[in-house]
Design a binder for these strands. Structure first.
Length: 223
DNA sequence: CGTTGATCATGC
DNA sequence: GCATGATCAACG
């Protein structure tokens, strides 16, 4: 399994590369990559679309909690688009840290959302036949960033003070959801004061309503 | 039908 | 085991 080559060295080059995927099906893209690919049942390959697009764009393999294109500060996110032209699902952002990040500016959430390359994927077809739409770059405007910061601060405090009471109902744009192999998993975490606690692993997600606004404000036909 | 909570595959 | 990539399935 190889990548499409060296990572792009500029945002423009990355965007050009992403837009070149527009109109192509996932199976076409998979075939063009050395090693071919699989493309089976989405239920059994939930992250396959994201992994495929990362390879096609030459994203470095990173095991760290940093944006996909760290040198450019750009995070790559595929966005499943339904028949009405709107995001069909919420969007995974990043795992919630086991010990609270110090502040919004230095949080893993902000680092990932400061600059995002959204890749719309039409979901109105079988997996392999799904087509890539028009990629677009996005950064939160001042008002949006305040919305995200407010959510992040609330959720971060809840993580540290009442982790077992957290539900996905908190947060306007951001939410916390379970993220583990199954519901029984617990990990050691830390409260605000550093004291140890045991908690279900959770991840930050963007609500679907939030990404619908992003797509609509981008003023483009996603597909 | 939209959300919430649960789950799947893979790599290190 | 834990983080990457998300979508599924049950419920209100």
């Amino acid at each position: 399994v190889s990548s499409a080559g060296a990572p792009p060295t500029s945002e423009r080059a990355l965007l050009d590369r992403a837009r070149a995927l527009g109109g192509r099906t996932l199976s076409e893209i998979a075939r063009s990559l050395e090693g071919g690919a699989w493309l089976g049942d989405p239920a059994r390959h939930k992250g396959a679309v994201g992994a495929l697009v990362e390879r096609a764009l030459g994203a470095p393999r990173s095991t760290r909690s940093e944006p996909d294109f760290a040198a450019l500060g750009v995070e790559l996110k595929t966005l499943p688009i339904d028949a009405r032209g709107r995001p069909a699902e919420s969007t995974f952002v990043t795992m919630a840290p086991r010990a609270p990040d110090p502040d919004w500016a230095r949080s893993c959430v902000r680092r990932k959302l400061a600059r995002v390359l959204w890749i719309p994927i039409a979901t109105d077809a079988p997996f392999a036949a799904r087509r890539v739409g028009s990629a677009f770059l996005w950064s939160p405007d001042a008002r949006t960033e305040e919305l995200l910061r407010g959510d992040w601060e609330e959720l971060t405090e809840r993580l540290a003070t009442e982790p077992e009471r957290i539900s996905a109902r908190h947060g306007r744009a951001l939410q916390l959801r379970p993220k583990a192999r199954d519901a029984s998993v617990r990990v050691r975490a830390a409260a605000l004061d550093g004291s140890p606690l045991l908690a279900a692993p959770r991840a930050f997600y963007l609500r679907r309503t939030f990404t619908i606004e992003i797509v609509e404000r981008a003023g483009l036909l996603a597909i």
